[in-house]
Amino acid sequence: MVTEWRLLELESNNAFQNMALDESICEHVSQGKSPPTIRFFKWNPSAVSIGYFQSLEQEVNQAKCKELGIDIVRRRTGGGAVYHDRDGEITYSMIAPESFFPKGITESYWNICGHIITGLAHLGIQSDFKPINDIIVCGKKISGNAQTRRNGVLLQHGTILYDLDVEKMFSLLKVSKEKISDKLIASVKERVTCIKDHASVSRQELYEALQKGFCENKTIITEKISDSELERAQQLAQEKYASKEWLDWR
């Protein structure tokens, strides 16, 4: 039997709803109520997300976020803090039973990141997977990815940088000197790049290329998100992701 994947087209949500939708879809896939899903989204308003194991205080300039109206949310995935600019990136989630992916964690990152690499190739951008969870172009990070596996379901989400305001990004994130100690470069700012540095394309064209990268060789259905998924997401957004308890737990 051919596996059908659901594509949820690019949409904008606030940070809490975005993370809640991922979790709600995971639950529904786990319960067999929803099909494997590929989802694309943007963040409105712009937001900072921090990894499950990160300290809010250590990683985020909260005063600056407040000043600029930027939401802060804790993810249920590990990894680092990310600034999600409303106009500067596209985020994806891929959610399916674990059995759909390689068992090894690095192999599964490689597998899913391969769709992004294929998508970027459609724009003429040569990129490479850099273990553990990054994609690089010309040696610089263009995409960060994070994965969790719960109740038999694998969720991987990640961002692809379209445009970059480095000064703003690093005014919001506190970057440890230790973090770059083995990179032998003067500044962490030199480690990141974006699509606009490598191709003259619109964000819509980036989205279409990524969609192609994720969807080719799959049977895609256009089923929308269900009422049950939305209802659960709204509950999770309100009770979990927007709560101080969840944000402050580390």
Partner: peptide
């Protein structure tokens, strides 16, 4: 003891 960082641990609650 509290650990923090940008590492991954599956399942996460094991921390």
């Amino acid at each position: 003891v509290r650990f923090f960082g940008d590492f991954f641990l599956h399942p996460e609650e094991t921390i």
